[in-house]
């Protein structure tokens, strides 16, 4: 089910219509009703930055990543930390030097301190769906938060149906059977 089809929430309320503030302007981080088109930032600097962020995120996290969530996370992380753009570039360099394709190939090369903190914060944000986990914090992803995926073969994401009426059993796959996501 595409996010725009879900529930009874009025279209205005859909997270995918959430407006993103970049500098002084507004970007529509959303989409026409019924479609799921990645957001196209209106200025090329932001587009480059978003693209770099997705590139690093994919290196840190070997899973499918939603570009709408990515754009919002990227902008928010940059707003929160002025050094973020610099860290992005440095972390990508470290990965490139190792010809890394997955996180295990370059993570140990990241020095402790602000660079490692940034790398872990990016991972945390994608998995938890928040940058800060505290009352009042903005939520960037709920059902797309990656933390639900390692158990998605057994557990529902709360508020979403497992299947149909009484549609579950007490069977469970083995622990070492990791879902693909």
């Amino acid at each position: 089910m595409s996010p725009s089809d879900r529930d009874d929430a009025p279209p205005d309320f859909s997270l995918f219509r959430r407006k993103i503030v970049v500098g002084g302007g507004l970007l529509l981080g959303g989409l026409a009703a019924g479609t799921r088109i990645p957001a196209a930032p209106s200025d090329s600097a932001t587009a480059d930055f978003a693209s770099q962020f997705m590139q690093l995120s994919s290196l840190l996290i070997p899973h499918q990543l939603d570009p709408n969530v990515g754009l919002r996370l990227a902008v928010a992380l940059r707003t929160k930390d002025p050094g973020f753009t610099g860290h992005l570039a440095t972390l990508l360099d470290i990965a490139k030097k190792k010809n890394a394709r997955i996180v295990e190939e370059f993570f140990s090369d990241i020095p402790d301190g602000p660079l490692k903190d940034t790398a872990l914060l990016i991972i945390s944000a994608w998995y938890l769906g928040v940058i800060v986990d505290a009352p009042g914090a903005e939520v960037f992803a709920y059902e797309l938060a990656l933390m639900y995926q390692p158990t998605i073969d057994v557990m529902t994401i709360p508020t979403y149906a497992i299947s149909g009426p009484n549609g579950w059993t007490s069977e469970a796959p083995p622990l070492n059977s990791m879902p693909t996501f």
């Binding site: 840190l60 070997p62 996180v103 991972i123 933390m147 995926q149 390692p150 469970a172 622990l175 990791m178």
Partner: peptide, 14 residues
């Protein structure tokens, strides 16, 4: 991070 993170999430959840 990576595979270790996913496995630990699954283990702690289950």
């Amino acid at each position: 991070v990576g595979r270790a993170l996913d496995e630990e999430i699954r283990r702690l959840s289950a």
